[in-house]
Design a protein around this nucleic acid. Structure first.
Lengths: 296, 296
DNA sequence: GGATCGGATGAGGCGCGCTCACCCGAGCCG
DNA sequence: CGGCTCGGGTGAGCGCGCCTCATCCGATCC
């Protein structure tokens, strides 16, 4: 006699579908067709003898049974994933998945990665910029690099570097700006998602907020910096993110020195992941790269 | 991105093989061939990139990795089994697995079962006498009936009836026994596995232990009672177990009244199992049959 | 009313996981 | 020593389970 368990593969389908509340999205996540998800969940429901989902023509709902089942299945699968990741002595898989913001990927990680690859050619790094927040171990990410203040409950976290804010523009434009008043004649570049950057900077400097001649708004920090590089105006740069652009002369600081942001870059991962040599290697390499703003 | 999980079906193989420390036995338990277990575990080991077992030509050992992995896999599977059993509103499976001692099965449960079947013809009851102790939910048992003193940590338990001890023999032989001294001329029937029955009875009666003319020893309580019924001697009977034999005149009590044993019959099951209608039905029926010693 | 979108359904095919047959090496016995 | 037994490993082959494909369905949105 043994555990009475439903077909275990169907539990993954159920978990994904219930979490995403969509067969279609679950299928995408699992690399299957929606049809496979539908079939699989039906198999599970038949085995259980109870419906787990209420199907509307558009969208889903969990039945009472599904609601009761989901958290326990989730927890069990997560627990298996953690345990599996932490099996001691596993032959390195040679793969490492790093989650970070696309800005950080483009401005720091991607340019620095060759040095990591030189040291560890056997590790195949994939960068993943889809998540703003990673759920370990569910999202299949090994390491996340995040701009935040902490704390990091139950996770391994390594503080990389404080973040600093400073206005940046092209070196040519920088010649024309020596006081806050000069900003009135410039175009200020704003980021719609972190729209308080300039206000915070003015406040910290103890200066009244300037009403500039013109201002532009961009979707991402990345685009603000690209705009500044193109000479479209003055944006708030973040150190160490723009360090490379400052070093290369594509950007110049104005009205320095930089003021501290209230956040820092952290490397975060599940404690168990440290058992994996790839993760240790990446953490050790990150440490050796500190400070991130060091010329690379 | 999703949980990075090994082929889940192989985890069942691993759990069973590690628990039983044998591919062969695991295969038997799972209804597979040893070859399938071997293949499956190899698949898991390949996926993990680490050996879980050390293979000797005879027998197995867990590697360090296996030792670390096993408890977590066990717990996760058990947790899934519990959650699955407890899914609310499941259509009744129509099956119920009852574990009890073979003596109880033969002397009480089997004869009484027709009444349960009459009330619940839709439930297919299987009796299982393999386990002395059941591990819920691993052994696939719904309900266990046990002679014990309790307590029952974390389980649902229903006390059925106290157990009583009394010497029994054929009615004809009973005519010849009216005092403890008469036992000296009789054959005392002993059970090798519960060899203190007679000693406990004499001590409780406050009588010195008789050295009988002859004594016989049997492997099981069942055989002791059969021997008594066949007129081979006087055995210690247990109420309510022998109630039926007393009622039918196949056995008679001597030197009564019965003395209390220190144990009682209990019905035990996992709390979650009470969600299942089959389990509730069985418990309710057992309650309605109380006292077990009632003529049936 | 046509387009779209998400899920259901049935047929079909591919691949995984199982079985079968055989090998291997250790221990046990005569 | 030699043959037997016993438990696990291995490779070939097959069948079934699971997935895909194609199509249908009903609701919702223009």
């Amino acid at each position: 006699m043994t555990y009475r368990l439903p077909p275990l593969t169907t539990l993954r389908l159920f978990e994904a579908a219930a979490r995403l509340m969509s067969f279609k999205q679950a299928a995408e996540e699992l690399g299957l067709t929606p049809s496979a998800v539908s079939h699989g969940i039906q198999t599970l429901e038949d085995w259980l003898g109870v419906r787990l989902f209420i199907r509307y023509n558009r969208g889903l709902d969990l039945t009472e049974a599904g609601q009761a089942y989901l958290p326990q299945v989730s927890e069990a699968l997560a627990s298996l994933a953690r345990a599996t990741d932490a099996v001691p002595g596993r032959r390195p898989s040679g793969k490492l998945s790093v989650s970070c913001a696309s800005t950080f990927a483009a401005r720091w990680l991607l340019p620095s990665l060759p040095r990591f690859q030189a040291r560890h050619p056997e590790i195949q790094v994939s960068m993943d910029t889809r998540f703003r927040q990673v759920e370990f171990p569910r999202d299949g990410i090994d390491v996340a690099i995040r701009l935040a203040a902490g704390p990091w409950d139950g996770l391994h976290a390594l503080k990389l570097e404080e973040e600093w804010l400073v206005p940046v523009c092209t070196p040519a434009m920088a010649e024309t700006i020596s006081s806050c008043a000069d900003l009135a004649r410039a175009t200020l570049l704003h980021n719609v998602s972190v729209s308080t950057d300039w206000a915070y900077w003015f406040a910290t400097k103890g200066e009244p907020e300037i009403e500039p001649a013109r201002s532009s708004r961009f979707d991402t920090i990345q685009m603000v910096l690209d705009a500044a590089i193109s000479g479209l105006g003055v944006g708030i740069g973040r150190l160490p993110l723009v360090q490379r652009d400052l070093d290369s002369g594509r950007l110049a600081m104005v009205l320095g020195p930089p003021i501290p942001s209230r956040t820092a870059y952290w490397m975060v991962c599940a404690r168990e992941s440290l058992a994996r040599p790839e993760v240790r290697a990446f953490r050790d390499w990150l440490r050796s790269e500190l400070p991130l703003s060091r010329a690379g």
